Simulated assay, not measured.
Amino acid sequence: MPLHAPQGGRRDFASLCSMQPSRYGVVVDEEVSDEAAGLIGGLQTTGGGPART
């Protein structure tokens, strides 16, 4: 018997089409940190707060 059967066939969760992270973390070696900051600074973002360098 499915677990949702006692609830009349209803499920207590909503389906999601996809999951998208709200932010990313980037870890680089100190030797390439300036280059990484420059590359990240050149990316366009769709929000999420200020860029950190």
Score class of each variant (00 low, 15 high):
Met1Pro: 14
Met1Asn: 13
Pro2Ala: 08
Pro2Trp: 13
Pro2Ile: 08
Pro2Val: 02
Pro2Met: 03
Leu3Val: 13
His4Gln: 04
His4Tyr: 09
Ala5Met: 11
Ala5Tyr: 08
Ala5Trp: 12
Pro6Phe: 12
Pro6Arg: 13
Pro6Gly: 13
Gln7Ser: 14
Gln7Thr: 11
Gln7Arg: 08
Gln7Gly: 11
Gly9Lys: 05
Gly9Asp: 06
Gly9Glu: 07
Gly9Asn: 07
Arg10Ile: 10
Arg10Ala: 13
Arg10Asn: 12
Arg10Met: 14
Arg11Trp: 08
Arg11Tyr: 10
Arg11His: 12
Asp12Arg: 15
Asp12His: 14
Phe13Trp: 15
Phe13Ser: 12
Phe13Ile: 06
Phe13Met: 14
Ala14Phe: 07
Ala14Cys: 09
Ala14Leu: 12
Ser15Arg: 06
Ser15Thr: 05
Ser15Asp: 07
Leu16Ser: 13
Leu16Gln: 13
Cys17Glu: 14
Ser18Tyr: 15
Ser18Trp: 13
Ser18Arg: 15
Met19Arg: 14
Met19Lys: 14
Gln20Arg: 14
Gln20Asn: 09
Pro21Ile: 04
Pro21Gln: 09
Ser22Thr: 07
Ser22Ile: 10
Ser22Val: 12
Arg23Leu: 10
Arg23His: 13
Arg23Gly: 14
Arg23Lys: 15
Arg23Pro: 05
Arg23Met: 12
Tyr24Thr: 04
Tyr24Asp: 01
Tyr24Lys: 05
Gly25Tyr: 06
Gly25Met: 06
Val26His: 03
Val26Leu: 12
Val26Phe: 08
Val26Pro: 01
Val27Leu: 08
Val28Gln: 09
Val28Leu: 02
Val28His: 02
Val28Cys: 08
Asp29Cys: 03
Asp29Gly: 06
Glu30Gly: 05
Glu30Ile: 02
Glu31Ala: 02
Glu31Asp: 03
Val32Cys: 04
Val32Trp: 04
Ser33Gln: 05
Ser33His: 04
Ser33Lys: 03
Asp34Phe: 07
Glu35Ile: 00
Glu35Gln: 02
Glu35Cys: 03
Gly38Phe: 00
Gly38Lys: 00
Leu39Glu: 01
Leu39His: 00
Ile40Arg: 00
Ile40Asp: 01
Gly42Trp: 00
Gly42Asn: 01
Leu43Gln: 09
Leu43Asn: 03
Leu43Thr: 08
Leu43Asp: 01
Gln44Leu: 05
Thr45Asp: 05
Thr46Leu: 11
Thr46Ala: 10
Gly47His: 10
Gly48Cys: 09
Gly48Thr: 05
Gly48Ile: 04
Gly48Pro: 04
Gly49Glu: 11
Gly49Ile: 12
Gly49Tyr: 11
Pro50Ala: 15
Ala51Asp: 04
Ala51Phe: 10
Arg52Ser: 10
Thr53Leu: 07
Thr53Asn: 06
